[in-house]
Computed example of a mutant assay.
Amino acid sequence: MTQTSSGTPIRVLVVDDQALVRGAIAALLGLESDIEVVGQAGDGAEALAVLEGERAAGRQIGVVLSDVEMPGVDGLAACAAIRRRFPTTRVLMLTTFGRPGYVQRSLDAGASGFVVKDAPSEQLADAVRRVASGLRVIDPVLAVETLARGASPLTDRETDVLRAVADGGTIADIADHLGLGQGTVRNHVSAAMLKTQARTRAEAVRIAMESGWL
């Protein structure tokens, strides 16, 4: 097994909003002699607090293994914050949803890897080791799909509008929430529908979510 250059175990923080899943992942990784799970967190904000506590105690976490979809501070936002505040800590994204768009957004946020939760435990442990050593790890199937699909075609404003649509808001509600005119909102919705090749607003939201663009 690969260990850190000092021969000490790789210190890992597991972040997932589902306690049972989080505990199971931590237990599996804890079986590896070269990996030490030193903490768990239920969302991105809690993960940052754990990292701050470790730093204050003079310790460092080598790898943060984080879910993508979480309430509050999600995995993508947490990843970006971790890379800014703890630049030597690597982030490995782990999700149930193998959506190509998530891979690109994770990499843009500074993640060193992306794997799906149904990967075999030995594959997950190996991904942690690789990321800790400075390598990048991406599920091969998702890597091909990501390259084939490319980055999100939606602008930031179109993404904001579709997210508001997903929350169930009317055109008037969305316009008020985003500080836009109703005509402008309609234009953004139409552009998003065209780019996603959707026939309705709801279908545009579904396609964007399945692609990992929202």
Rank of each mutant, 00 (worst) to 15 (best):
I10F: 04
L194F: 05
G98D: 13
T8H: 14
I25W: 01
V185N: 08
M70T: 06
M209S: 10
G98S: 11
I35F: 02
R99P: 01
G39K: 05
G134M: 03
A49V: 00
G53I: 09
P9K: 03
V14L: 07
T96R: 14
R85E: 12
V21Y: 01
G58R: 13
R163N: 12
R59P: 03
V15S: 04
Q123W: 00
G53R: 14
E54S: 12
F97E: 12
F114S: 04
D118N: 15
M93A: 13
G98M: 11
E46Q: 15
P87C: 11
L107H: 07
R149K: 13
V116N: 09
V185K: 07
R55L: 13
G183T: 15
G110F: 07
P100E: 09
R83I: 02
G101V: 04
R99L: 14
E46H: 12
V64E: 09
R11M: 02
L20K: 04
G62L: 08
G183W: 02
G179N: 13
V38D: 00
R136E: 11
G53T: 06
R129S: 08
D16C: 06
V189C: 12
A143S: 05
T146Y: 02
V21D: 03
Q104M: 14
E52H: 12
D108S: 13
M93T: 07
A111M: 05
L94F: 14
V116Y: 07
V63F: 06
R130T: 03
P153Q: 12
E52Q: 15
D126I: 00
F114P: 04
T89Q: 07
L147A: 12
E32I: 02
A208C: 10
A47I: 01
E210L: 14
L28I: 07
A192H: 06
T200D: 08
T170G: 11
R136I: 13
Q18K: 01
L51W: 08
M193S: 06
L178P: 11
Y102F: 15
I138D: 00
A109K: 13
G212R: 07
G58D: 11
H177C: 07
V116W: 07
Q182T: 15
A56V: 14
M209T: 13
